[in-house]
Protein backbone atom coordinates (compact mmCIF):
# COMPACT_ATOMS: atom_id res chain seq x y z
CA UNK A 1 0.00 0.00 0.00
CA UNK A 2 1.39 3.37 -0.98
CA UNK A 3 2.31 5.96 1.62
CA UNK A 4 -0.28 8.30 0.18
CA UNK A 5 -2.99 5.74 0.63
CA UNK A 6 -1.85 5.11 4.17
CA UNK A 7 -2.02 8.80 4.96
CA UNK A 8 -5.51 8.93 3.49
CA UNK A 9 -6.60 6.08 5.73
CA UNK A 10 -5.13 7.78 8.74
CA UNK A 11 -6.89 11.02 7.93
CA UNK A 12 -10.15 9.18 7.30
CA UNK A 13 -9.76 7.28 10.55
CA UNK A 14 -9.05 10.47 12.43
CA UNK A 15 -12.18 12.11 11.02
CA UNK A 16 -14.30 9.16 12.14
CA UNK A 17 -12.80 9.19 15.62
CA UNK A 18 -13.41 12.92 15.95
CA UNK A 19 -16.98 12.49 14.69
CA UNK A 20 -17.66 9.75 17.19
CA UNK A 21 -15.98 11.29 20.19
CA UNK A 22 -16.63 14.98 19.78
CA UNK A 23 -19.93 15.11 21.69
CA UNK A 24 -18.32 13.00 24.41
CA UNK A 25 -15.46 15.47 24.63
CA UNK A 26 -18.05 18.22 24.87
CA UNK A 27 -19.81 16.48 27.75
CA UNK A 28 -16.48 16.09 29.52
CA UNK A 29 -15.74 19.75 29.00
CA UNK A 30 -19.12 20.96 30.21
CA UNK A 31 -19.00 18.64 33.22
CA UNK A 32 -15.82 20.41 34.30
CA UNK A 33 -17.35 23.87 34.16
CA UNK A 34 -18.41 25.63 37.33
CA UNK A 35 -22.09 26.72 37.35
CA UNK A 36 -21.27 30.32 36.50
CA UNK A 37 -18.83 29.23 33.81
CA UNK A 38 -21.42 27.13 31.96
CA UNK A 39 -22.43 30.08 29.81
CA UNK A 40 -18.91 31.12 28.80
CA UNK A 41 -19.73 30.42 25.17
CA UNK A 42 -16.54 28.43 24.73
CA UNK A 43 -15.94 24.75 24.25
CA UNK A 44 -13.47 24.51 27.12
CA UNK A 45 -14.00 25.59 30.73
CA UNK A 46 -12.24 28.76 31.87
CA UNK A 47 -10.97 26.82 34.84
CA UNK A 48 -11.47 23.19 35.76
CA UNK A 49 -14.00 22.53 38.50
CA UNK A 50 -14.80 19.11 39.98
CA UNK A 51 -17.90 20.41 41.71
CA UNK A 52 -20.31 18.65 39.35
CA UNK A 53 -18.73 15.26 40.04
CA UNK A 54 -18.91 15.91 43.75
CA UNK A 55 -22.60 16.74 43.38
CA UNK A 56 -23.27 13.53 41.52
CA UNK A 57 -21.02 11.11 43.42
CA UNK A 58 -21.05 12.35 46.98
CA UNK A 59 -23.27 15.42 47.03
CA UNK A 60 -26.96 16.14 46.75
CA UNK A 61 -27.51 14.11 43.57
CA UNK A 62 -25.63 11.00 44.69
CA UNK A 63 -28.66 9.46 46.36
CA UNK A 64 -30.40 9.63 43.04
CA UNK A 65 -27.56 8.73 40.81
CA UNK A 66 -25.69 5.86 42.44
CA UNK A 67 -28.70 3.56 42.94
CA UNK A 68 -29.81 4.40 39.41
CA UNK A 69 -26.45 3.28 38.08
CA UNK A 70 -26.72 0.00 39.94
CA UNK A 71 -30.28 -0.52 38.68
CA UNK A 72 -29.36 0.22 35.09
CA UNK A 73 -26.53 -2.29 35.13
CA UNK A 74 -28.42 -5.07 36.86
CA UNK A 75 -31.63 -4.73 34.92
CA UNK A 76 -29.97 -4.38 31.53
CA UNK A 77 -27.58 -7.29 32.03
CA UNK A 78 -30.34 -9.64 33.12
CA UNK A 79 -32.65 -8.52 30.32
CA UNK A 80 -29.87 -9.00 27.78
CA UNK A 81 -29.00 -12.48 29.01
CA UNK A 82 -32.59 -13.67 28.97
CA UNK A 83 -33.37 -12.14 25.63
CA UNK A 84 -30.25 -13.60 23.97
CA UNK A 85 -30.97 -17.06 25.26
CA UNK A 86 -34.58 -17.00 24.08
CA UNK A 87 -33.72 -15.33 20.79
CA UNK A 88 -30.98 -17.79 20.01
CA UNK A 89 -33.34 -20.73 20.08
CA UNK A 90 -36.06 -18.85 18.24
CA UNK A 91 -33.71 -17.60 15.54
CA UNK A 92 -32.33 -21.08 15.01
CA UNK A 93 -35.82 -22.45 14.57
CA UNK A 94 -36.74 -19.65 12.19
CA UNK A 95 -33.59 -19.81 10.09
CA UNK A 96 -33.23 -23.54 10.03
CA UNK A 97 -36.33 -25.52 10.76
CA UNK A 98 -39.45 -25.93 8.71
CA UNK A 99 -42.48 -25.56 10.90
CA UNK A 100 -45.78 -23.80 10.58
CA UNK A 101 -45.97 -20.56 12.48
CA UNK A 102 -42.51 -19.19 12.02
CA UNK A 103 -43.97 -16.41 9.96
CA UNK A 104 -46.31 -15.75 12.84
CA UNK A 105 -43.35 -15.53 15.20
CA UNK A 106 -41.44 -13.17 12.93
CA UNK A 107 -44.46 -10.98 12.35
CA UNK A 108 -45.11 -10.90 16.07
CA UNK A 109 -41.52 -9.93 16.68
CA UNK A 110 -41.85 -7.14 14.15
CA UNK A 111 -45.16 -5.97 15.58
CA UNK A 112 -43.70 -5.96 19.08
CA UNK A 113 -40.63 -4.12 17.85
CA UNK A 114 -42.62 -1.41 16.18
CA UNK A 115 -45.41 -0.94 18.64
CA UNK A 116 -45.03 2.47 20.22
CA UNK A 117 -43.64 2.11 23.71
CA UNK A 118 -45.73 5.08 24.77
CA UNK A 119 -48.98 3.21 24.34
CA UNK A 120 -47.79 -0.01 25.97
CA UNK A 121 -46.62 1.80 29.01
CA UNK A 122 -49.87 3.02 30.57
CA UNK A 123 -51.74 -0.31 30.53
CA UNK A 124 -48.53 -2.03 31.67
CA UNK A 125 -48.36 0.34 34.60
CA UNK A 126 -51.82 -0.71 35.75
CA UNK A 127 -51.07 -4.42 35.50
CA UNK A 128 -47.71 -4.03 37.23
CA UNK A 129 -49.42 -2.21 40.09
CA UNK A 130 -51.91 -5.03 40.51
CA UNK A 131 -49.38 -7.87 40.45
CA UNK A 132 -46.74 -6.01 42.43
CA UNK A 133 -44.14 -5.57 39.70
CA UNK A 134 -44.29 -1.79 39.78
CA UNK A 135 -40.98 -0.19 40.72
CA UNK A 136 -39.13 -3.53 40.80
CA UNK A 137 -36.35 -5.01 38.69
CA UNK A 138 -38.55 -7.68 37.06
CA UNK A 139 -41.02 -4.90 36.32
CA UNK A 140 -38.46 -3.36 33.99
CA UNK A 141 -36.74 -6.54 32.81
CA UNK A 142 -39.97 -7.85 31.28
CA UNK A 143 -40.76 -4.79 29.18
CA UNK A 144 -37.07 -4.55 28.27
CA UNK A 145 -37.45 -8.01 26.76
CA UNK A 146 -40.09 -6.56 24.47
CA UNK A 147 -37.46 -4.07 23.31
CA UNK A 148 -34.55 -6.50 23.00
CA UNK A 149 -36.17 -9.79 21.93
CA UNK A 150 -37.49 -8.75 18.52
CA UNK A 151 -34.26 -7.22 17.35
CA UNK A 152 -32.31 -10.13 18.78
CA UNK A 153 -34.48 -12.60 16.90
CA UNK A 154 -34.28 -10.68 13.66
CA UNK A 155 -30.59 -9.96 13.81
CA UNK A 156 -29.74 -13.52 14.79
CA UNK A 157 -31.99 -14.93 12.10
CA UNK A 158 -30.07 -12.83 9.60
CA UNK A 159 -26.83 -14.21 11.00
CA UNK A 160 -27.99 -17.80 11.16
CA UNK A 161 -29.26 -17.62 7.64
CA UNK A 162 -25.72 -17.25 6.37
CA UNK A 163 -24.34 -20.17 8.32
CA UNK A 164 -23.38 -23.18 6.17
CA UNK A 165 -26.10 -25.54 7.26
CA UNK A 166 -24.65 -28.27 5.00
CA UNK A 167 -22.22 -28.83 7.82
CA UNK A 168 -25.07 -29.59 10.15
CA UNK A 169 -26.58 -31.92 7.63
CA UNK A 170 -23.23 -33.57 7.23
CA UNK A 171 -23.15 -34.08 10.97
CA UNK A 172 -26.68 -35.44 10.89
CA UNK A 173 -25.70 -37.86 8.14
CA UNK A 174 -22.85 -38.89 10.39
CA UNK A 175 -25.44 -39.94 12.93
CA UNK A 176 -25.90 -36.86 15.08
CA UNK A 177 -29.38 -35.82 16.12
CA UNK A 178 -30.74 -32.40 15.21
CA UNK A 179 -29.99 -31.19 18.71
CA UNK A 180 -26.44 -32.55 18.68
CA UNK A 181 -25.82 -31.06 15.27
CA UNK A 182 -27.07 -27.74 16.56
CA UNK A 183 -24.91 -27.79 19.63
CA UNK A 184 -21.70 -29.18 18.23
CA UNK A 185 -21.60 -27.60 14.80
CA UNK A 186 -23.81 -24.57 14.76
CA UNK A 187 -23.27 -23.05 18.19
CA UNK A 188 -19.55 -22.39 17.64
CA UNK A 189 -20.33 -20.89 14.24
CA UNK A 190 -23.18 -18.83 15.60
CA UNK A 191 -21.59 -17.70 18.85
CA UNK A 192 -19.91 -14.60 17.45
CA UNK A 193 -23.21 -13.51 15.94
CA UNK A 194 -24.97 -14.13 19.22
CA UNK A 195 -22.36 -12.07 21.00
CA UNK A 196 -22.76 -9.13 18.66
CA UNK A 197 -26.52 -9.37 19.10
CA UNK A 198 -26.08 -9.41 22.86
CA UNK A 199 -24.18 -6.15 22.71
CA UNK A 200 -26.89 -4.55 20.59
CA UNK A 201 -29.56 -5.84 22.95
CA UNK A 202 -27.70 -4.50 25.97
CA UNK A 203 -27.37 -1.05 24.50
CA UNK A 204 -31.07 -0.96 23.61
CA UNK A 205 -32.05 -1.84 27.14
CA UNK A 206 -29.48 0.60 28.51
CA UNK A 207 -30.96 3.33 26.34
CA UNK A 208 -34.56 3.03 27.48
CA UNK A 209 -36.17 6.19 28.79
CA UNK A 210 -39.96 5.86 28.65
CA UNK A 211 -40.35 2.59 30.59
CA UNK A 212 -37.82 3.81 33.10
CA UNK A 213 -39.69 6.99 33.77
CA UNK A 214 -43.21 5.50 33.92
CA UNK A 215 -42.71 2.14 35.61
CA UNK A 216 -40.48 3.24 38.48
CA UNK A 217 -40.75 5.82 41.19
CA UNK A 218 -37.95 5.27 43.68
CA UNK A 219 -34.34 4.23 43.75
CA UNK A 220 -35.52 0.62 44.02
CA UNK A 221 -35.58 0.29 40.24
CA UNK A 222 -35.14 3.70 38.63
CA UNK A 223 -32.57 3.52 35.82
CA UNK A 224 -30.09 6.25 34.91
CA UNK A 225 -31.89 7.90 31.96
CA UNK A 226 -34.94 8.46 34.14
CA UNK A 227 -32.79 9.73 37.01
CA UNK A 228 -31.13 12.39 34.84
CA UNK A 229 -34.44 14.21 34.63
CA UNK A 230 -34.63 14.45 38.40
CA UNK A 231 -31.45 16.36 39.04
CA UNK A 232 -31.81 19.89 40.21
CA UNK A 233 -29.61 22.91 40.15
CA UNK A 234 -28.83 25.01 43.19
CA UNK A 235 -32.52 25.86 43.24
CA UNK A 236 -35.48 24.40 41.42
CA UNK A 237 -35.33 27.14 38.82
CA UNK A 238 -31.70 26.61 37.89
CA UNK A 239 -30.78 24.15 35.18
CA UNK A 240 -28.57 21.33 36.47
CA UNK A 241 -26.51 21.46 33.28
CA UNK A 242 -23.21 20.63 34.94
CA UNK A 243 -24.57 17.82 37.09
CA UNK A 244 -26.32 16.25 34.10
CA UNK A 245 -23.09 16.42 32.12
CA UNK A 246 -21.10 14.83 34.96
CA UNK A 247 -23.65 12.04 35.38
CA UNK A 248 -23.83 11.59 31.62
CA UNK A 249 -20.09 11.15 31.46
CA UNK A 250 -20.07 8.68 34.32
CA UNK A 251 -22.68 6.50 32.62
CA UNK A 252 -20.67 6.74 29.45
CA UNK A 253 -17.40 5.56 31.01
CA UNK A 254 -18.53 1.95 31.66
CA UNK A 255 -20.03 1.87 28.21
CA UNK A 256 -16.74 2.99 26.68
CA UNK A 257 -14.94 0.34 28.69
CA UNK A 258 -17.42 -2.28 27.49
CA UNK A 259 -16.97 -1.12 23.93
CA UNK A 260 -13.20 -1.33 24.19
CA UNK A 261 -13.39 -4.79 25.77
CA UNK A 262 -16.01 -6.12 23.38
CA UNK A 263 -14.53 -4.47 20.36
CA UNK A 264 -12.25 -7.40 19.60
CA UNK A 265 -15.09 -9.82 20.14
CA UNK A 266 -17.25 -7.91 17.71
CA UNK A 267 -14.43 -7.86 15.17
CA UNK A 268 -13.90 -11.57 15.64
CA UNK A 269 -17.62 -12.21 15.65
CA UNK A 270 -18.20 -10.42 12.39
CA UNK A 271 -15.23 -11.91 10.57
CA UNK A 272 -15.37 -15.48 11.89
CA UNK A 273 -19.13 -15.66 11.81
CA UNK A 274 -19.10 -14.77 8.16
CA UNK A 275 -19.48 -17.61 5.75
CA UNK A 276 -16.80 -18.01 3.19
CA UNK A 277 -18.51 -19.04 -0.01
Amino acid sequence: MSTRKKVMWWIGGAIIVVYALFPIAWIISISLKAPSDIANGQFLPSSISWGNYETVLTGSASELFLPALRNSFGICLIATAISCLLAMFAAYAIARLDFPGKKVILSTALAVAIFPVISIVTPLFNVWRQIGLYDTWPGLILPYLSLTLPISIWTMSAFFREIPWEMEQAAQVDGATTWQAFRKVIVPLAAPGVFTTAIIAFFIAWNDFVYGIVLTSTEAARPVPAALGLFSGASQFEDPTGAIAAAALIVTIPVVVLVLLFQRRIVAGLTNGAVKG
Partner: peptide
Protein backbone atom coordinates in the same frame (compact mmCIF):
# COMPACT_ATOMS: atom_id res chain seq x y z
CA UNK B 1 -14.39 0.35 15.26
CA UNK B 2 -14.27 1.21 18.94
CA UNK B 3 -14.92 4.88 18.20
CA UNK B 4 -17.94 4.08 16.06
CA UNK B 5 -19.44 1.89 18.73
CA UNK B 6 -19.40 4.71 21.26
CA UNK B 7 -22.21 6.91 19.91
CA UNK B 8 -24.37 3.83 19.63
CA UNK B 9 -23.70 2.91 23.25
CA UNK B 10 -24.37 6.40 24.54
CA UNK B 11 -27.88 6.81 25.92
CA UNK B 12 -30.17 8.83 23.63
CA UNK B 13 -31.10 11.11 26.49
CA UNK B 14 -27.41 11.83 27.11
Amino acid sequence: RAAILIPYAVITVV
